[in-house]
Write a protein that binds this DNA or RNA. Sequence first.
DNA 1: TGATTTTTGTTCATATATCGCACGAAATGA
DNA 2: TCATTTCGTGCGATATATGAACAAAAATCA
Lengths: 251, 251
Amino acid sequence: MRETDFVSGFAKGLKVIEAFGETRQRLTIAEASKLTGLDRATVRRSLLTLSELGYAVYDGKFFTLTPKILRLGHAYLAATPLPTIIQPHLDQLAERAGQNASASVLDGTEVVYIARASQRRVMSINLTPGSRLPAFCASMGRVLLAALPESEARSVLKRTDLRANTPNTKTDPEELMAEFRRVREQGYAVIDQELEIGLCSIAVPVENDRGQTVAAINIGAPAAYVAASDMAERFLPLLKETQKALRLVLP
Amino acid sequence: MRETDFVSGFAKGLKVIEAFGETRQRLTIAEASKLTGLDRATVRRSLLTLSELGYAVYDGKFFTLTPKILRLGHAYLAATPLPTIIQPHLDQLAERAGQNASASVLDGTEVVYIARASQRRVMSINLTPGSRLPAFCASMGRVLLAALPESEARSVLKRTDLRANTPNTKTDPEELMAEFRRVREQGYAVIDQELEIGLCSIAVPVENDRGQTVAAINIGAPAAYVAASDMAERFLPLLKETQKALRLVLP
DNA sequence: TGATTTTTGTTCATATATCGCACGAAATGA
DNA sequence: TCATTTCGTGCGATATATGAACAAAAATCA
């Protein structure tokens, strides 16, 4: 790609939009400038452009994103068959399990939720499509990392901030690599309160008809309700069934 | 705003992203150019910029959005308190009603889903946060339009493509205005298969502590399961309760 | 409170990057 | 094969980014 094939004004504008995600609803020009590292004048132009297009509003002091901004993310969700195909299976899975079920894909060091069926509220975090969690300590993340070549998985870990969310969080790279091997062999991953105290989850890969892992699905349950050691016995058959159904419909 | 305070490269890039929402997953440069009305060279630069930033991938022929694009919409969902505050109430509502519950805000002539708790699958459409429906024929849309001054509601209708989705869809502007008045008086809106055959829904406004309508919540149910005439009796108390709880927590 | 400092929003001039057109090459399809 | 469509690229005209400059607004302090 040539130098001139890059629209830096566009890239900067996207950076400005993402700046809103890092903090709160309202940003001043100076705040956005600090968060993005861009010049105040440049940020101002981006923000005024967003306002002009209806993606943001400006009260003379603060800029606020409007729901119109959701069109951008939705362009992906609507355009990509994966979430659409998975959603009904997920709904059914959640209903039969009586617990929350989710689907996600890997994006760098994080898992991104692309679909979700909630049955009950157990997590303190509000997860919706687009939500992100560190891959190394999430059940779906383990499954997705296990599907990568070892060298790539190791590279992801290297780039990850391996911070412990709970006392249970595994943070040693070698231990995690061993865990990935185990996950690859047994075909599923169980997380015992590594992300949040009181929450266990179990995930399996979603494969297309060529056997490539294209996503992961999981079921989460309160630790008080299902012990980590019982997760597989309790939910693996349901997950496997959904996995099998998806393999038949994914191109 | 001055001419020079508008970054057209940014605006064009956003238009390109939205072009993906209108059709399918993969777009060639020429397709994106047609969809956006922008010059091919311009579209190409935007797409290459998206690829360079990891928001899209290019296989030499087709461009495809990546999950990273969800960060943009998520910047809104994470930054705006509304979805986060509403979600747990919605989960509870859906569980108690045994039906799907959703929350949305108005964006132009459409309602935009900002949160959703699904209990079962009744709609053919896959609704996730960011999904859009025409406001005039959705229960939440009726509630949100009823909350506008009559002149504004009329203006929205004027800009709306009043196409009938089903034989039940009300499309006469005067009839709709009368419906808005009724909704305003009774404090809720019921839709009887105007959007999709077999689907009824009931919505109430979500008000902040100053009584301003900031969103709407609804419950949808299969027409075969609950007749439209029974929707209010069946679900209005639950909706009112959630509405009241939200009024206390919304700033 | 009032003076002083810091931060912020805005403007400006200019060097630089982008836009859209036009053209030829390559791919597609009949 | 030829006709049609799609792509990549060079170029001049035009739009944008930049950082300094300045006024206004906050914040700080005496």
